[in-house]
Each structure stands twice: as C-alpha cells, then as structure tokens.
Design a binder for these strands. Structure first.
Length: 859
RNA sequence: GCCCGGGUGGCGGAAUCGGCAGACGCAGCAGACUUAAAAUCUGCUGACCGAAAGGUCGUACGGGUUCAAGUCCCGUCCCGGGUACCA
C-alpha cells in the first residue's frame, strides 16, 4: 500500500482512529496474570455545551503517552474515559428552553466523545461510563445505602441560602453581598432539612493516610490544612450565680491565668439562659443581625463586634469573675462554640478587648529573640499594650495548688491540663476544622436519594428497589418552596411500602455532583456488571489507581470526598486498598495569550492589532505588552482545539501541548508554537518517506556511523527515561535532535529508523502507525516491544573537557572519556592556552571531575 | 495575614548528587534554491566593550559558603494558586 508522499494528518488520523476502534487495540484484559497491571486514570470531564477547551487534552495527552509507552513495555494497561454528566448547567438550560437535561447531556457527551476520539487517545472505549446512566447511578445510590446503614448519613437542619424572590436555594458562590447573583434579590439564611455525610468520623484516618500516597506535597498540605487537626484542651467555666457551666476549647490551656473574659458564639445554646434582663434586648438584636449575615460576610468583617450578656463566668484557676460576651468572631461550628479570651496572647482576643476596653493581663514573658524578630517590644507585652501569641516563659500563673511560672509553653500546657483533669473540670481534646459534608441539593438533575419519608415519621431505605429512577418531567422550574423540582412530580412523589402498605413521600433532594465522581474509578473496573458495582476479584487485580492526572482545582474537595467514600467501602470489605489513588499528578493550567496596557489592565484580543511588530490598542493606539491570562470569553483568548486539529492534525496538537513546558507548570498557549512541532513532524516524515510515497531510498541496512549509533542510543535512553518520568518536553527535544541529524545523512539505517518510529509513536501515534506500516509491518505497533539502548554505546571514546583556571573556562580539550584524574591534569597543564592563563602564577591545586572538567587553582 | 508553588535571552523553556548557563523550539537577521512567493535548506542570534583577537557582566535583589553557585545557606522584593476570625 502506498502512502501520501507528504505528511497529511487529515488522511492518516481518521484511518488509524477507525483501526484502533474496530480492532479494540486498547482493550484492558481483566485478571491477566501474565503481565503487570497498570491503572492510569484521567479526571473525567463534565460535558459542557461549550465542548473541550485546550486544557482538557493536556492531561489526557500526558496519560495517553504514558499508557502507550507502558503497553510497549509489556504492561496490561487500564485506561478509560467517561462523563461526569449530572450538574447545574443542563438543568438551567432546561429551565430556559424546556429541553430535558438528558437530551442536552446526550448531545454534549456525543460532542465530547467525538472531540476526544479525534485526538487518538488510547482509551478502552468498551468501558465508557456516564454518571447519569441509571445503570451507573444505581450503584451510586447503593453506596449511599452503605453509608446510611453505617450511620454515616443523617438528616440535619442546616442554614442554606434561601432566596424568596427566586423561590430557590442558592450555592454560596451564587450569593454576592447577601443578594442573589441573578436578579439581585435578597438572600436569607434559612434552616432546611438536609442530608449530611459524617466525613468527620474519618478525619483522623484521612489525615494519617495522606502520608502513604505519592502526591504533590502542596496538595497533601492543602488536605491537611482542610482537615485542620489541632490539639488542645477543654475547660469548664462555672457561670457565677447559676448551675450551668460553659465548656470552652482552647489550644492554649497554658494561658488560662490570662483569661479576662469569655465569648460565646451568638448561636450558643446557653446565651438565652444566662443573658440578664437588662442586656436581653441588645443580645437578641445582635443575634438577629448575625443570623442575617452569610458566612462570607462574617468572615469579611474586619472590625470586631459583640455584646455583653450581663453574666459572669468564674475562672477556675483563680476564682476571678470574668464577663461573658457574645460575638460572631466565635463560630458555633468549631470546638464548643465558646472560648476563653486571653487578649494578651491571642491577636483576635486582643483586638476585641481593645475595641471594648476589656482588661489585658500578660502572663507570659516573650522570648526576647523571637520578640525582636517580630518587632514586638517586650515591655509593651508585659504592660498589656501589645499581643504576644508566641512562646516564652510563664509569669503571674500560679494558685495555691499549681504554678506554671517559669515554664515554657509546652510544659505549661501539660502541667495545667494535668491539674484540670485532677479537678475534674478539664481534659485534653482534639479538634478538626473539617465539617460534615452537606450532601443534598435542591435540584432535578442529580441522583435521587433511595429514601422515602414514611407517614409514621420513619425513614425507609429503598435499597431493594435500586435504581430509584428520576421521574420524567416537563417542567424544571424550582418548586418555590425551597424543595427541588422533584416536589412537583406528583405521581413519583407518593410511595407505598409494598410489604406493609404504609404510605410515604419520596425524598426530593438529589445528590451533589461530587457523588458520581466519588467512585467512578471503581466502575471502570467492571462497567457492565448488573449484579454489583464491581466484582471483587477484578477490583483486587486493578486497584489502586497507579497514576491519576487532573487539575489542581480538585485538590481538596473531590479528592477528599473520594478518599472518604473509599475508606467507607474499605470498612465494608468492598475494596482492598486503604487509598484509591496511589500517585497523583496535577497538570498546569494552559493560559491564553492576552495583552495589557501600561496600567496593567488586560485588553480583549479583538481590540488588539499588530503594527510594525508591536501590539497596539486598535482604538487608542497605545502600545500593549503580551501577557498570559486565564482563557475567558471576555478576553477572547480562548483557543478551540477543533480548529487546531483541523489545521495541524491531532499529532501536532498533542506534541505541542507536551512541548510547551513541564506537565505540571502553568503555560501560555501560543499557536505560533504549533508550527515548530508541525515542522518537526513533516521533517520526520520526509526522513522516512520518499517522493513517491514509498519508503525513502535513503533507508537501507547499511551500518550506522559511530556518531549515528551513539545518537540513536542516547535518544532511546533519553526518550525512555523522560517518558517514564512524564518529562515529555525534553523527550521531544531529543527526538528533534535525532531527526535533525539523521535527515542530513544520505544513509539511514533501517533499524535505527524503526527504533525512532517506536519512540515517536506514543507521542504522535497516528504517524507512528502509518510509518510502521510503511516500514513493512502488518500490524499495529501498540504492543511491539519498546526499543532498548546499550549504555556502552551512548558514550563517545573522546569527550570535550573544559579546563578552567580559577573557575573561568580557558580551554576546551578533547580527552579520552575514561581518562583518570592524573591523565586529565597532565593534558590540561600541557595546553598552551592554559599555560598562558597560568603565566606568572603557581599552581596551588587541581580539581578534576572525570568526563566533565578540570579546574586549576593558582596564585 | 497564613500555607504552597514560582522568578533563567525578545518569547516558551533546558541545565539542579554544585561542574562549559541558555539544549530544543518560536520570533528575528543573513544567505541558498525560485521569474517571484510559499515551502525547504544553511549560518547567526544574552548584554556591554572591541576592527579583531579577546575581555567584562549576566539566572528577581542583597549578603554568605565553595576551587566552582541558576543549583546550597541567611535576608528582601515581586508574581501565581489555595485559604481565611478554626480559639
């Protein structure tokens, strides 16, 4: 079969995509014990109406290259694609156009699939999944049932963002300054019954097992911070003249002697009880004001506010009466919702005390050096005029039974906690910032909960009737009551227990989009199983995911939620590994090319034109500078991958995305840069294919020159190692060097060319297959063994050695590659240029690095 | 504020067990081929001084360690991401 004489991606790419699909070239073989398994996972996309952007194929290309490389290395590779297809945009589109979300979703999925296939990615398409498929969400619901049975799913009254004008609940990001993003209507915080998942029960394990996975350090740190473990103590304070006690959580029990007041969260249950009649009006007003504020507003408030309750607590270490205040800087959801305030040693308490003129008593002399480094005057701290949250030596901290004076922080904590425990009024305590997971959404387009609320008030788990299907509906507008549109599905809503005949009402909330993505990596293992989510033997074979590649925007939530579900499934005996994703890599964001003016303001690309090599503002004529910025519609710097593929082909697109820079780095897209890799592909083609479209006559079995052989082995080594390390940009550089050199030669050794085609194939698979076929091979190179290099042949017998005098290069001399220290020194000292540089000096010392350099130290 | 990344030519980037800074590519300049253009091929391309040979400077900035620093240490500045009253 003859081939096009010039490189024509538009012909060869569809041909090979078709071939791979019909031959199922990338089918993963379950339970194949003859090969080592490798599970490489991409974060699956939400199929939006806008189609793929250039960021999607970045990670997908990286994993594809890695998978193709590993198949040639003999691995049984599981590599899959699917659709995270529940979500808000399809539902909003449905409201506007009355198109059923499933119709929109199907259309978008088809488009995404078409785009992804056009890149030639080596997915096992027989394992494609879709989270909106009842055959899939049956098992999402099944996992919910397991959570429920273990007591990890519960209903709670939670304040949500309720917009009366829109008749719907809004997500946090849809609320701006207490008003709805759309329509600018007021939003209030309204308690509603919501499903919660008890992720906090797994806080400790989620924290501890971070240490067992191979993830970027930054992501691991973000997860640790999110879990936010702190160790401290709880202390009971009696309320003066009453029987109640108030328990506080503190990480600094050592500062107990400095507690001069106490603050309760406005939502604290004891506020109403302890508030005195004189203060009641002010307290209630403050509570009401706090309830109206969103969490964001509360967090953004810079100035401390609060109200005195009129009540006093008794500091257990010294019997002093201290006033009890309420303030929204104390959060009900953390610790006990109450704090002891130590203004001398806590910056927030200090600010509050200063605002309201509360006493500030220093009970720790700052460490002098540390105070100086922080620019804090020790005298100010001692006088209560400055705050010192650091370490130091305790002062003024003794009663008849216990003294902390002179102790450093850590010892003081141990001492006082021991005393509190003996008194029965305190204990060591651990706290986490992590909150339970709000798991309901008031939406239609999500997984229904397999739950009915029965007339006797009980909850019936419908785990015998899975999947609980979404009802067909005509209207997707909100119900108006705060419930999801499902509340309008009258026929669906009523539930009758088939066994007892008791009536009930189905749950109208649906699950959040996170649900389907929490376990999809398990479904790929056994995607067609109707008896179970996955078969245990297959799970044991394929898990864990060996490499997971995706964007850093999922650093916390998706990865933490998935880890949580995985641990629950582990406890159920449904999975065999403690962690789902052994290794994680985040691809860097691809930025668009934009322009900014002198003030630094970004200018949309359609207002920019090039004049005499400069970029100027069309209207003002101001000279602009190039500046990378996030791709956005408003800046008109979005690159459409379809256009790039149409112009250059998928192989060039893949190659460019990998050549731009390191996978993990943020990089600006420059379409001009695609020209470089496109030329490289043309050049590689011409190196192998002659004018007539047949194999170039310059390819023969004639032996390589020594230089060619060395370059071949160096290239195999570098491409092999770099591909294995995901350093694709430098692997491509090396292949360019190979092509530049071999193109010049009139004799091109056939074996060398075949090895090159195999190295190239994971990167430019369509061209790889086409050239492989042209070289006379009947079948796909997918499972051909990867080329092997000979380390001895990567090295030249003579190498150039730099000779430095006092660290400055003075000569470059050829020396035998295996020359020893003495020989190198002798050759260096014999050189004229070196001698000239040494004139008038005496040699003090000679440093030699074999194979690299000689440095002569002289006076 | 705190945590995590990162600052290298006109641009993307390469080189980190300390050992020739700028591989490879883009853009630019010059030349070959061509009636011409495109494509392709060849050469040059960090800055400064110099006719040249050559020299000086140079990896955000200021110090330090070392025969030798983009790389290690101390301090500062800037950019990006995350997070935010978590007691």
């Amino acid at each position: 079969m003859s081939t096009s004489p010039t490189y024509d991606p538009a012909t060869i790419e569809p041909k090979w995509q078709e071939y791979w699909l019909t031959n199922k070239s990338f089918a993963a073989v379950d339970l194949d014990g003859s090969r080592e398994k490798l599970y490489v996972l991409d974060m699956f996309p939400y199929p939006s109406g806008a189609g793929l952007h250039v960021g999607h194929p970045e990670g997908y290309t990286a994993t594809d290259i890695f998978c193709r490389y590993k198949r040639m290395k003999g691995y049984n590779v599981l590599h899959t694609m699917g659709w995270d297809a529940f979500g808000l945009p399809a539902e909003q589109y449905a409201m506007q156009t009355n198109t059923h979300p499933s119709v929109t979703t199907q259309k978008n999925v088809d488009n995404f699939r078409r785009q992804i296939r056009a890149f030639g990615f080596s997915y096992d398409w027989d394992r494609e999944i879709n989270t909106t498929d009842p055959g899939y969400y049956k098992w999402t619901q099944w996992i919910f049932c397991q959570l429920y049975k273990k007591g990890l799913a519960y209903i709670d009254e939670v304040a949500v963002n309720w917009c009366p004008a829109l008749g719907t609940v809004l997500a946090n990001e849809e609320v701006i300054n207490g008003r709805s993003e759309r329509g600018d209507h007021p939003v209030i915080r309204k308690p509603m019954k919501q499903w919660m998942l008890k992720i906090t029960a797994y806080a400790e394990r989620l924290l501890a097992d971070i240490d067992t996975v191979d993830w970027p350090e930054g992501i691991k740190e973000q997860q640790r911070n999110w879990i936010g473990k702190s160790i401290g103590g709880e202390v009971d304070f009696a309320v003066a003249g009453r029987s109640e006690t108030i328990r506080v959580y503190t990480t600094r029990p050592d500062t107990l002697f400095g507690a001069t007041y106490m603050v309760l969260s406005p939502e604290h249950e004891l506020v109403a009880t302890i508030t005195t009649p004189e203060q009641r009006a002010a307290v209630v007003a403050y509570q009401e004001a706090a309830a109206k504020k969103s969490d964001l507003d509360r967090a953004e408030a810079k100035d401390k506010t609060g109200v005195f309750t009129g009540a006093y607590a008794i500091n257990p270490v010294n019997g002093q009466q201290i006033p009890i205040w309420i303030s929204d800087y104390v959060l009900i959801s953390y610790g006990t919702g109450a704090i002891m305030a130590v203004p001398a040693h806590d910056t927030r308490d200090f600010a509050f005390a200063q605002t309201f003129g509360l006493p500030i008593i220093c009970i720790m002399e700052p460490d002098a050096k540390a105070a100086e480094a922080e620019g804090v005057a020790v005298a100010d701290v001692l006088a209560g005029k400055a705050c010192w949250p650091g370490d130091g030596a305790m002062i003024n901290s003794a009663n008849a039974e216990v003294s902390l004076n002179g102790l450093p922080k850590a010892q003081a904590i141990d001492t006082i906690v021991a005393w509190l425990e003996k008194q029965g009024i305190g204990t060591k305590a651990v706290n986490y910032k992590l909150r339970d997971w709000l798991f309901s959404r008031q939406r239609y387009w999500g997984e229904p909960f397999p739950v009915a609320h029965m007339e006797d008030g009980s909850i019936k788990l419908l785990d015998e009737e899975l999947p609980v299907l979404l009802p067909e509906m005509e209207e997707f507008a909100p119900s108006g009551t705060g419930e999801s549109p499902l509340a309008n599905a009258k026929d669906w809503l009523d539930y009758t227990d088939p066994a007892t005949g008791m009536k009930g009402r189905r749950e109208t909330n649906t699950m959040p989009q996170w649900a389907g993505s929490c376990w999809y990596y398990l479904r790929y293992i056994d995607p067609k199983n109707t008896e179970a989510g996955w078969e245990s033997a297959k799970e044991k074979y394929w898990m864990p995911v060996d490499l997971y590649v995706g964007g850093a925007e999922h650093a916390v939530l998706h990865l933490l939620y998935a880890r949580f579900w995985h641990k629950v499934l582990f406890d159920c005996g449904c999975v065999s590994t403690k962690e789902p994703f052994q290794r994680l890599v985040n691809q860097g964001m691809i930025l668009g090319l934009s322009y900014k003016d002198a003030r630094g303001a970004l200018v949309p690309n359609d207002l920019v034109e090039e004049r005499d090599g400069n970029f100027v503002h069309k209207d003002t004529g101001e000279t602009l500078t190039e500046f990378p910025a996030k791709m956005s519609k408003s800046l008109r710097n979005v690159v459409n991958p379809d256009e790039i593929v149409a112009r250059y082909g998928a192989d060039a697109f893949r190659l460019y995305e990998m050549f731009m820079g390191p996978l993990t780095a943020m990089k600006p897209w420059q379409t001009k840069g695609v020209d470089g890799v496109y030329r490289f592909l043309h050049k590689a083609w011409r190196m192998i294919v002659g004018q007539d479209g047949e194999l170039s006559p310059e390819i023969s079995d004639a032996p390589m020159t020594a230089e060619q052989e060395r370059l071949l082995h160096q290239t195999i080594q570098k491409v092999d190692e770099d591909t294995n390390n995901l350093s694709f940009n430098t692997a491509i550089s090396q292949m360019m060097i190979f092509v530049n050199e071999f193109s010049k030669a009139s004799q091109r050794n056939r074996a060398a060319i075949e090895a090159f085609v195999q190295l190239l194939a994971p990167y430019a698979p369509h061209m790889g297959e086409e050239l492989w076929q042209l070289l006379g091979h009947g079948t796909s190179l997918t499972h051909e063994p990867y080329p092997v290099y000979d380390a001895a042949k990567t090295k030249a017998s003579e190498v150039e050695i730099v000779v430095q005098v006092l660290g400055k290069p003075k000569a470059r001399l050829m020396m035998p590659a295996d020359a020893g220290t003495a020989a190198m020194e002798a050759i260096a000292l014999a050189d004229d240029k070196v001698q000239a540089a040494l004139a008038g000096k005496s040699v003090v010392k000679v440093i030699t690095v074999p194979g690299r350099l000689v440095n002569i130290v002289a006076k």
